[in-house]
């Protein structure tokens, strides 16, 4: 009886070790799978960031060009019939010093 019990404990131990091995291996694979997925997500987000940065630079450049004097100057002169003011039409207001303020 005792002999049979020892044999059973041995097989159980081997079974337990195998089960633990499978569990640990599964956990490692699972962790690596999660890691790789997250890495892919990070890479995708990084690519998105790069793309957005690139888009920002392009839009910034377009805004700069669109608001440049060369573009706006021509447009306002043709469409709105505006012109560069003469120096007489530009008034420079002197700053009021605190002691001169009323």
């Amino acid at each position: 009886m005792a002999k049979s019990g020892v044999a059973l404990r041995g097989r159980s131990l081997v079974g337990l070790i195998l089960a633990a091995f499978v569990l640990i291996a599964t956990a490692i694979v699972w962790r690596r799978t999660i890691g790789i997925n997250q890495s892919e997500q990070l890479a995708a987000l990084d690519a998105k960031r790069v793309n957005l940065e690139s888009e920002r630079a392009r839009l910034d450049a377009e805004i700069r060009d669109a608001s440049s004097r060369q573009n706006l100057g021509t447009a306002v002169e043709r469409r709105l019939r505006m012109h560069v003011p003469t120096d007489k039409q530009v008034v420079i207001l002197p700053r009021v010093r605190p002691d001169e303020a009323p």
Binding site: V91, L93, R95, V96, R97, P98, A101
Partner: peptide, 13 residues
């Protein structure tokens, strides 16, 4: 030019 400004002058330059 003589300009009358409705706003109060700035407190400090």
């Amino acid at each position: 030019y003589v300009v009358d400004l409705p706003a109060a002058p700035r407190p400090a330059p």
